[in-house]
Computed example of a mutant assay.
Amino acid sequence: MQADIFAKKQRNTLVFLVLLGSVTFLAMIMTDYNAVKGITSVPKAVQWGLANFYPTAESLEKLPAILEKLQETLLVSIAATTVAAVFALLFAILGSNTTRVNAFFGAITRGIAAVFRNIDVAAWALILLFSFGQSSLTGYFALFFGSFGFLTRAFTETIDEVSGGSVEALKATGAGYFSIIFQSVIPSCISPLISWILFMIETNIRSATLIGLLTGSGIGFTFNLYYKSLNYDIASLVVVVIIAAILCIEYVSNYVRRVIL
């Protein structure tokens, strides 16, 4: 019996790999992608990068302006995430199978979260450009909507997994709905919820760079400006600053997890 199950899994794996390889090969044909040319061009790209894409002493004069734009990007990312987390928690409580008011409102909130979650932040930025133009507000709302959808899903699953037993226990004692929320759900879920928020902040700081290219704001716009004007030394300095900021944020996030969680 086990041998049959193992053989079936092997066949399914083989079929999947064949289909994946066929799709990849078809995509290469349709896009006229030359794998050999792509591989052989890597050394030339590395050589060009080492020869042109590095900070110089003159580029350091632009560092204060770059750090100012980086600060703008960080603040927008953190603000969008934290505000989205508040709304996501409300929708997660209404949408969770454990804490929902009724099935109808649960389905509505889950549906709204699914719509926001399945639209990428870059797509949100393009949509919002028509309303707000190229500004920091456009980037803020793009990150907010993307964070709201993701965090609602994450919070909903966390509430379902963590607080089910304690909620049932409080219901058995006759506790009210708000007592269950504030005395059981939030206390039992607070650690994973904070962990998800920290993860979303890290993700949004990375995404904000791309969003800045589209919305004409923040560190992403600064990189695009210098890169298109062929100031590769300053553009490379922007990249170094972005990498350093991401590493610092990840270190702080991991430290908070160790200390608080």
Rank of each mutant, 00 (worst) to 15 (best):
A27E: 06
L17T: 09
E202F: 14
A169H: 02
P43C: 09
I234K: 09
I260Q: 07
S59Y: 10
A245K: 15
A172M: 10
A57E: 13
R257H: 06
Y177K: 15
P192K: 10
N12W: 11
P187L: 11
F132S: 10
V23W: 10
I211P: 03
F130L: 15
S96V: 03
P55K: 12
F87N: 05
V259R: 15
T173E: 13
T209Q: 03
F91L: 15
L193P: 02
A51I: 01
I194R: 11
L89T: 08
A113I: 04
F155E: 08
A65M: 12
P64E: 07
A244R: 13
Y255H: 06
L143Y: 07
N118M: 11
L230V: 06
L225H: 15
T73R: 09
T73A: 10
R153P: 00
D4G: 01
F182N: 14
E61L: 08
A169Y: 00
Y232E: 08
L19Y: 07
I242A: 13
V83D: 03
N97C: 00
E61A: 12
A172F: 01
N12Y: 07
F199Q: 10
A235V: 02
A208C: 03
R100T: 01
V23R: 08
M30F: 14
G220Q: 13
L60H: 04
Y177T: 07
N12D: 12
Y227L: 08
V101N: 01
Q134W: 01
A245N: 15
A7V: 01
R257Q: 15
N224T: 15
G165Q: 14
S77Q: 05
F91Q: 05
F16D: 07
T158C: 04
L70C: 15
C189K: 11
A169M: 03
I66F: 06
